[in-house]
Computed example of a mutant assay.
Amino acid sequence: MSLFKRNPFGHLLFLKRWMIRIFGALTHKRYHGFNELQIDGSEIIPTLPETNVLFISNHQTYFADVVAMFHVFNASLKGRDDTIKNMGYLWRPKLNLYYVAAKETMKAGLLPRILSYAGAITVERTWRDKGKDIQREVNPNDTENIRIALEDGWVITFPQGTTRSFKPVRKGTAHIIKQYKPVVVPIVIDGFRRSFDKKGLRLKKKGILQSFVIKPPLEIDYDNETIEEIVEKIEYAIEQHPSFLKVIPAEERAVEEQLNKQREWRY
């Protein structure tokens, strides 16, 4: 491989490789040491095609969720079932792995800008900007960049577009699924908002059992299912459909809502 080989977005692959190695080594103990990441379903990862795979997940922190996925995916591809023991899997990481992130988040400081090089596809939120509700048309360049990333490899997205639980799934993800027909793999995570601050950069509490469940790819009729049907299928798959609230006690929901307010990161 040429030293100056680039991905479709112009990023030098050797630089991306070293960034993943370094940040992977720095963050490994956050999931296997200070806390314990309990993984289920990682045997699915090696069976997936090399390109056009879309991972959908609930969201709990800005960065810790994605970093955990980089760890789990690379460990799984190196034959580690449901574990990220031993960091050797970081030496030759998967380089065609991308994640969708809000443009304003990735520009908020030097570290997010550096992390962006590891694979961020930055998009403009159509419903919120700088803490205010807005209404904005979808930027066609954002959709095009997701298409390019899917053609090159795997893409991680958080279809609710927020770290708050049980918020509606945005229709944009369903449109992408219908248009580009990727293999859609759901992931359900928990414990991250208890382990880290809202940005997912500062370790807030140790000894937390974090869960990371990879589910089989969704069965989707890309041509005949409606956007609304796909949205509902996503909500159930990542366990964020409103019906899940019925099995959570009201008192527990109230406490969680209060904690969400306390976790809000202010610029």
Rank of each mutant, 00 (worst) to 15 (best):
S243D: 08
K206T: 10
K130I: 00
D197A: 06
V100L: 12
E252M: 05
K94N: 08
G88S: 12
V169M: 08
F70N: 04
G172S: 08
A254P: 00
L110D: 00
P140K: 14
K103I: 02
V155R: 07
Y117I: 07
A102G: 14
V184D: 08
Q179L: 10
M69Q: 14
P249G: 03
A102S: 10
V138T: 13
F196E: 05
A102E: 07
M69N: 12
N96H: 13
L3E: 03
R193V: 01
I248P: 00
R6N: 01
N224S: 10
K132A: 02
L203H: 09
S116N: 07
G79A: 04
H32A: 13
K246W: 00
L201E: 03
R30S: 13
R17H: 01
N7S: 07
K171H: 10
T163M: 03
L3Q: 09
R6T: 10
D82Q: 08
P242E: 00
R136V: 00
I234S: 09
F192C: 12
A118P: 00
R170A: 06
I214A: 04
V123G: 05
F14W: 13
P49F: 11
E252A: 07
F55T: 10
Y222E: 01
S211A: 06
D190N: 15
I187G: 10
H11G: 01
E239Y: 07
Y31N: 07
R266M: 08
P8I: 06
A120M: 09
L90D: 01
K261Q: 11
D81L: 15
D65P: 02
L201H: 09
I248G: 01
T47K: 15
D142E: 05
I44T: 12
T27D: 03
N86C: 05
L15R: 02
V138L: 14
R194E: 14
L77V: 04
T162E: 01
H32E: 13
E124N: 15
M106I: 08
P216R: 14
E137K: 15
V66T: 14
R263G: 00
S2L: 04
L150S: 03
I56T: 07
Y222S: 03
L15E: 00
D142P: 05
K181V: 01
E264I: 14
T226P: 07
K261N: 08
A75D: 01
L3A: 13
G10Y: 06
I39D: 07
E264F: 14
D133K: 15
K130H: 11
G131W: 08
Q240C: 04
N86A: 11
Y31V: 05
Y99F: 15
G153S: 02
L203Q: 13
I248F: 03
K181W: 08
I189P: 04
K181C: 11
S116R: 08
V100C: 05
G153E: 01
K29Q: 08
A250G: 00
I44L: 12
K85C: 05
I39A: 09
I121H: 02
T122K: 07
E50L: 09
G131R: 09
L12I: 09
T61E: 06
I156V: 15
S211K: 15
M106C: 13
A25Y: 13
E256Q: 08
